Simulated assay, not measured.
Amino acid sequence: MANERRMLVLRAVIEDYIRTQEPVGSGALTRTHDLGVSSATVRNDMAALEDEGYLIQPHTSAGRIPTEKGYRYFVDRLATVVPLSPAQKRGIRTFLSGSVSLDDTLRRSARLLAQITGQVAVVASPSLARSALRHMEMVPVSSATVLVVVITDTGRVEQRTIISADRPSDEVLGRISARVNAKCAGRSLRRCGIDVGLLAQEEPDVANRGVMDALARVYDELATQEQASNLYMAGTSQLTHGQTADMAVIAPLFDALEEQAVIMRLMTALSEVTQSHGVGIAIGSETHTPGLMHASVVTTGYGQSSAKEEGDEAGETPSGGEPVAFVGSIGPTHMDYATTISAVRAVARYLTDFMTNEEGGADDDTGH
């Protein structure tokens, strides 16, 4: 029972510290929380929590603040997340409905998430490796050049050129495009590369086969292309202008944000291993990133891959349905976790609905 009460004291300390960013004393706790015990008992509990590594006393005779271990215990047992207000829900809908393209939607989503949380928002564009082919066109540009336009199910449009000294006629290029679309629509770009390579082997005409082999290489390149540059960030200025901005913490965080490939790997991995409330959370050293030792990351995936791989029959619902990208928030370890979790999850749901053009479900940010 004493241990159970001690953990209630820990939760109270963390809630107060998140709200005030000031060390919390036993007297303040007994005044603001109904713990049912005296200030002396609370003081003893706080001393025990410090011995166990959940709290630390930054200065002698001062109150205590949570440690990384304390935050982890708190986050893992977070009972509820704060629902977004009707105004915030309307704000998300307005931001998305006013966008003119997928890139614009992602940029707007990052700005809005940063406004809700007061932290750095990071939104990744859909991964080509997890995208499926919607449509492909081969457009003749010159006597030796063909422009390949690939449109994915996530709205990405990629263009590549193929150089062929013996370019097929416009009519033949049209027939090749039709064959590839009929064979590959709905399949992952990696699978498209394989399928187009197989179609090329069946092609008797040498010039046609050369163009189809080059097209297969285009799909292979797209499927393995790194997307580290396609990150949309917002909210860095809000961190620096916050009332409790600590430049000793913020400066290394900014350095970490400059390393976009590092942020991409961290948040992608974290979004694939969801923890409490359907999000992935890394606190301090759990990020394995030096610049984020005093920061926390909350992220989750959005969208759902419809790409079919080998073993998936045509027309069959693809297995897996993994997210195509992530949305997340980066802030100090004393962030408001409940609000951040709710906001990240809600924006992810709106992005998923936007990409699938489905109505309904966007008002529900409870995760159920």
Rank of each mutant, 00 (worst) to 15 (best):
S109Q: 06
Y71C: 02
Y232W: 12
Q243S: 08
I341K: 00
R19V: 05
L257M: 11
L253S: 02
L113Q: 07
Q225P: 03
S97G: 06
V100S: 07
Q227E: 12
P83N: 05
Q119V: 00
Q21K: 15
I330Q: 04
A12I: 02
D364T: 04
G235C: 10
L102V: 13
R190N: 03
T268P: 00
E310H: 05
E359A: 07
A282M: 08
Y232M: 07
L96Y: 04
A182T: 09
M212W: 11
M267S: 11
T224Y: 09
P204D: 14
G98C: 06
A62R: 13
C184S: 07
S177Q: 13
A343Y: 07
R43C: 01
A314Y: 05
D153F: 10
T274F: 02
R77F: 08
V347W: 02
R217A: 13
D365C: 05
G331T: 12
V149D: 06
T80Q: 11
Q243T: 06
V100E: 08
A261L: 12
N357T: 02
A132K: 03
D364F: 07
R77L: 04
E226H: 10
Y71W: 09
H135C: 01
R190W: 01
L292D: 10
V120M: 04
P323S: 08
D213P: 00
R72K: 15
T289C: 14
